[in-house]
Nucleic acid binder design. Structure first.
Lengths: 199, 199
DNA sequence: CAACAAACGGACCGGGCGGTCAACTTGCTA
DNA sequence: TAGCAAGTTGACCGCCCGGTCCGTTTGTTG
């Protein structure tokens, strides 16, 4: 491929400043945070933003990619944990906490994300599947749920809580616990619809 | 209060056309559907929109109000159902189906909704509480969940599924079932956080 | 230290948005 | 059916947004 020449020192620094500022700004003001505001927050000219990220969508994609990678790393470590059930719960906790600290939910489904993101998502999904398989074999979760179920439910605790205007900071743990109880084998009722396929 | 003179026939008709068109448009294009497009879809001039709803936010509020009322009516009927557990599940199903047919999730939290909405929300919340109390007394749900828990979890099945780009139409039922299993007494683990108060 | 490419900044552009207004049309009522 | 208030309309306004461009600054390299 193209051997990308290393960025100049100031350019590399500005890139990081921009990513951080953009994440904060999106978290505070939602998806229509303006590029100009992001630039100002990073202490940088607007043109600089577009030099690093040709499009606002490219900027969003960079942030999302970063988030997905974090989850992938966390999940991969948990694959070797002693208790597979606890590991799955821990993964869900990490995912929720990440989303809690900086809610960027809206940009996930920002249509037509790049192929790079699709790929990163794929590897993360595969790791989640492995986590679930281990937990299932261990009898920690019911037989009829799959990795995709976890992917789908992953951010539910936070999303659900964020409807409340003034929720206590750890309330999401309550709903994670309820949902996780629904994933356990004890007292499980048959599910009315087959799981979605790996995309 | 002000005895509101009845609308002229054409005005009343246009008001309904507008509400319908706006709901469709918001469902399709998200919160930034433009007033101009809504007007066009309703076959009406842009000025007419603003005559009926002084602000785009007022239009949104009117739609949300309608949604809440529908739920309130459904919930009130279910209060007299024979099986309280089934009634609660049915309420959740109705809520999810409503959201499925026309996803307006984003406008729920549209900040600072009018006092009218706050009030309508209040009555709906109280009915949900009653539904849950009945179900709990009947042993259909675990002792440690409250009406607010149901309010919080109400739309989770749809919200969660809507992350998937091409989800089968009834997939949400799967997640409603999982979550409902988490609400049952059988195999319940203690919850790590107290429930949120009635707002 | 000289010289050049890389990076920067911010004025600028076209477009679409929410919202206004004054001229026009239409349903109601006496 | 005449008259008038209620209702409609679309051109118009100001604003802000994503994105461009070019003159200027700055890090790097020999």
């Amino acid at each position: 491929m193209t051997p990308p020449r290393p960025l100049r020192a100031d350019a590399a620094r500005n890139r990081q400043l921009l990513l951080a500022a953009a994440a904060d700004e999106f978290a505070e003001r939602g998806p229509e945070a303006s590029v100009a505001d992001i630039a100002r927050r990073a202490g940088v000219g607007k043109g600089t933003v577009f030099r690093h990220f040709p499009t606002k969508d490219d900027l969003i994609a960079a942030i999302v990619l970063d988030r997905i990678s974090t989850l992938t790393v966390a999940g991969r470590e948990l694959l070797t944990a002693a208790d597979p059930g606890a590991a799955l719960l821990e993964f869900l906790t990490v995912a929720a906490r990440q989303r809690d600290q900086l809610d960027l939910s809206f940009l996930q489904q920002a249509g037509g994300l790049g192929a790079e993101i699709t790929q990163a998502q794929g590897t993360m999904f595969r790791i989640v599947h492995a986590l679930v398989d281990r937990a299932r074999e261990h009898g920690a979760v019911r037989a009829d749920i799959t990795g995709m179920d976890i992917v789908v439910l992953m951010c539910a605790p936070i999303d659900v809580v964020s409807q409340l205007p003034d929720a206590p900071p750890d309330l999401w743990q309550r709903y994670l616990a309820i949902i996780f109880d629904g994933l356990r084998p004890a007292g499980a009722h048959p599910l009315p619809h087959p799981p979605p396929p790996l995309p």
